[in-house]
Amino acid sequence: MTDARRRILQGLRVHAAAKGRAPAIPVRRFEWSQEEAVDRLEQMMQAVRTEVHRVDDAWPQRLAEELTRASARRLYYGAKGPLTGELTAGWPDSAPELVAWEGSIETTRDRLFDEADASFTSARAGIAETGSLVLWPTPAEPRLLSLVPPIHCVLLERRQIVSTLHALMVEERWAAQMPTNALLISGPSKSADIEQTLAYGVHGPERLILLIR
């Protein structure tokens, strides 16, 4: 296969082209106030059927009410997630059972696919322009937590909302510190493969509940 590599690269070097530096793209951003950015994010995410709630510190109570209404029995969360303390402390007794994901996927897979009705994660940021949540899954909050359970719940702080992806990538210097997996999530999963008609809840979560504090 090294032969294939050599031959391909050789073929691409037949005609030396004018090289030049990578184009510098002006950073796209909007001068929105924080209130405007929150409104925009809410409106964009609602347009793709995200359930957005503005919450205060009693958010676990609020989330428990939503999940009880959805008849969820178990909420999975990352055992060492940044909001775990608040979640467990504020969780009402009568609410759906809280289940901490602690082990590896190999020991959790069956339960996650078969038993988890809902999951909870934090978010790294929110993007107002497109109505997107930015998640960098970690050992504390693994990748499949935001993907396998039918209801995904997220708490986002108002101060985490930025105007564009481009501005966020540049300000946080993503290029120097990309994680194994970085995600933008903009609504529950959907498809328009049948007659171009939108249907929500395909292979990813059927519902996305966003709490903005």
Partner: peptide, 18 residues
């Protein structure tokens, strides 16, 4: 799109899935 998925490597030793 609903998901933009940026993959930069396999599971690291301390990670739980992937």
């Amino acid at each position: 799109t609903t998901y933009v998925n940026m993959i930069s490597g396999p599971r690291k030793p301390d990670e739980r899935d992937g």
